[in-house]
Design a protein around this nucleic acid. Structure first.
Lengths: 89, 89, 89, 89
DNA sequence: TGGACGAATGGGCGCC
DNA sequence: GGCGCCCATTCGTCCA
């Protein structure tokens, strides 16, 4: 018998609601922080623009650097997989 | 003559580069924090799921509450405008 | 007066319907071809698996090679942008 | 003794590598074709849009027709099974 | 207003 | 055979 997560039960409404509310509020709080960071980032771009830099260029640079990091990590993974496949890890 | 921000000049390369680098790194730092928050949010959804709540529903709830807040604020603004128009504010 | 694309007019129903149908059928045909390719790809992975290769590893390799190509293209773009910013392009 | 596919052996590296490379390139080729088709599909949607049709609606239509086709096929299968059960097929 | 970006949904896949 | 993860596509939002 598949044990799906308990559906909300009558009688548990209030406690359940409180539980749900807590989760919802945690998410909302985090989302607010996230939005604040987004605004900060925009601010930095605006400041950079005021100093003669182009946002498009900056984004391109950042993307490259990001890809570099990702690529390094992934290459490491591939290497590990190959080593593991050879029984050397 | 409209004074648009100075384009990068040859000869300023090093100082300019340092300047650009600073902006780039500030953005990258903020982006990392933002990503961390995104992950936290996912964590909360996962935890909620483990307690029998559905992420999709939660998102719907959060969207509604968000709209409500916006609506309230807007209504407050309208009210303030009316009061101001009546010289009561 | 903003000229938004003509809304379907009463009386044009049949011609309009024929027009829409033509677009829909073109998309459907292309989607079928695409699905066929997806199946081919699965076939190749299956064949490779039959020869002792692991799909996960292959995917990792392909992803890396793909990133390489992308990265090259993007770096070229960044270079072009920098050159353009210096008035050298 | 169950003959599971040979794991890559040390000493077979080069031939193995060539083999793997062949599979990888076949996949990459197919993926490119697939991407080309995706782009074609986008092109059709763009063209339709230019003729006043909405992509979202078109997608809905296509989805419905797809489901219909599936349903028809399934019903046909059921019918065939019944006919076969009656020795009429 | 169209394009770019991030988030969200749905489907495919392997694991248990 | 169900479950959770991962990827592809799609949808909404923001900026130019």
């Amino acid at each position: 018998m598949p044990r799906q997560p308990e559906a909300p039960k009558i009688g548990d409404n209030s406690v359940n609601g409180a539980h749900l509310r807590a989760f919802v509020e945690r998410v909302e709080r985090l989302e607010e922080d996230k939005k604040a960071l987004s605004d900060d980032i925009k601010g930095v771009y605006a400041e950079a623009k005021g100093n003669g830099f182009d946002a498009k260029q900056m984004r391109a640079v950042i993307r490259i650097r990001w890809q570099d990091r990702d690529k390094r990590r992934e290459e490491q993974e591939v290497l590990d997989m190959h080593l593991a496949a050879l029984g050397l890890l």
